[in-house]
């Protein structure tokens, strides 16, 4: 397997940001009320992650070591602002639903974490691959969590309703988010994580 494909695959299982590294918990819990919401939040983060990873790996050699964190944060914040403007223009409904958590991508530890741990030491192409891998891993985790909560909470999947009436509403609300994520992590620990 080529090294780039390996990098992308690692982001899915070995370095899965949600289930293994426990990063970016706030958007994970807050925006996964349905599968579609989880998916859109994941894709928004993927966008910022890939672009900021590429930009940071390109400028890393010339950034003085002492100010590298503030510089990275400004780069990330720039792409987040770009994303905000794009989403306001093209997908206003999604932007409205995700609300505060779009600007909060700036302080999502996944983005700064990858910038610091990977992009600052690797080339542009490798950093892009890493961004795609980790971003897709995050998107997958959010979509799965969103789907589970949607199935239990409102009896539908990707908006398609398979029972009449309401589901167990608690799963769409705050407690369900914590409990579902807890149990998904247990399954991940038991069946996917190899020591």
């Amino acid at each position: 397997m080529s090294s780039k494909a390996r990098l992308i695959l690692d982001g899915f299982v070995k370095n899965n940001p949600t289930f293994v590294l426990l990063l970016g918990m706030c958007p994970t819990l807050a925006t996964t009320t349905s599968a579609v919401n989880g998916l859109s939040m994941g894709l928004a983060t993927l966008f910022v992650l890939v672009l900021s990873n590429m930009a940071i790996s390109a400028i890393a050699p010339v950034v003085p070591d002492k100010v590298h964190i503030p510089v990275y944060i400004v780069v990330i914040a720039t792409f987040v602002t770009l994303l905000q403007l794009l989403m306001q223009a093209y997908t206003p409904a999604v932007y409205e639903t995700l609300g505060l958590f779009i600007p909060l991508i700036v302080v999502n530890c996944i983005v700064l974490g990858r910038a610091e741990a990977f992009a600052s030491r690797n080339g542009v192409i490798a950093s892009a691959a890493d961004g795609i891998g980790v971003g897709l891993g995050f998107t997958l985790a959010l979509t799965v969590l969103g789907a589970v909560r949607e199935i239990l909470g409102s009896g539908s999947i990707f908006g398609w309703k398979f029972i009449s009436g309401d589901g167990m509403l608690a799963f769409v609300m705050a407690p369900g988010a914590f409990i579902c994520l807890g149990y998904l992590m247990v399954l991940f620990n038991k069946y996917l994580k190899k020591e």
Partner: peptide
Amino acid sequence: PIALVTVGILAMAFM
């Protein structure tokens, strides 16, 4: 995982 489940129950109490 157990911490998350506990927070979930705590959140239920706050509801």
